[in-house]
Design a binder for these strands. Structure first.
Lengths: 158, 158
DNA sequence: ACTGAAATAGCGTAGCA
DNA sequence: TGCTACGCTATTTCAGT
């Protein structure tokens, strides 16, 4: 028997979809919207959590309200002749609070970094003291976001 | 009297930080961790929500578990001679479920799109039928993510 | 998957340091 | 501001069917 099931039905997807939009919805109300009893929905949800479909719950905070007005994407090219560049870069990125996402990509550069900072001054500091300070960083290209057209949309589950 | 206050203290930040990590924590436990009474924490949280610091709550879903194994970033260049390209593109992007984020950027291109799809086949369909089908799209550059080094880190509130 | 009972948590109010 | 304390309501959890 498998440790974690992977098959989920329409009802499970509906649960995930609603929960993604409102993580604090009461189980009774969730059950009403689904059309099942609270107990059944609770059991399904517990299974979905156990099997890793739901990783957790979180408050969605407004970055601008928190003074994080500038969103930037940074393309990073590494000098592959330097030893352990990838490991070192990956580790440094984990500890930098400004970095919200970092991905290794296939294409014209090596890493794509998404970061949020207060303003351009803060960004220059972050770039100089964090990104460029790392050994093996050969080149960076910064793209400042002028307008967030679509921000953190829910995953298409249904 | 102001409609929405903007000043938040250390305690507020602690509340936001904990809530960002666990959106379903009980108010009593949150109060314990903060070192205040549940009533006070409840009032603070209510204010933080009213003033727009907290936009909502949501379940964090595992995209890979849901069959969305491929994360891509697409740089999009628009043909500025076509009328209303920006408006049309922005509207189309809102309705596309594959698009998780879309930002207008300053620099070498116009929009940066973050999308999640099942695989390369699904991506080719999305690119051809959604992105390239839009009028005014002059060029796209696709960067497929090989490894998600850091994924959706919490905002640095504290 | 449902029902029903017991345990918990949340919410509003009042009064006080 | 924050705290305690109360009662009330809603919700979760755990039986058994």
């Amino acid at each position: 028997m498998a440790v974690g099931m992977t098959e989920i039905d329409k009802t499970d997807r509906k649960i995930l979809s609603i929960l993604q939009g409102d993580g604090r919805i009461a189980n009774v109300e969730l059950a009403e919207r689904i059309g099942l009893s609270p107990t059944s929905v609770g059991e399904r949800l517990k299974r979905l959590q156990r099997d890793g479909f739901v990783e957790g719950y979180g408050a969605r905070l407004n970055p601008h309200r928190l003074g994080l007005g500038l969103l930037v994407f940074v393309e990073v090219l590494l000098d592959k002749t330097t030893p352990d560049v990838f490991e070192k870069f990956a580790r440094a990125v984990q500890t930098a609070p400004e970095v919200l996402e970092c991905h290794m990509v296939a294409g014209g550069f090596d890493y794509l970094v998404k970061a949020r900072v207060a303003n351009m001054t803060a960004y220059r500091r972050f770039l100089g003291e964090t990104l460029l300070a790392l050994p093996g960083v050969r080149e960076t290209r910064t793209y400042a976001v002028m307008e967030e057209v679509k921000r953190d949309a829910p995953l298409p589950v249904g």
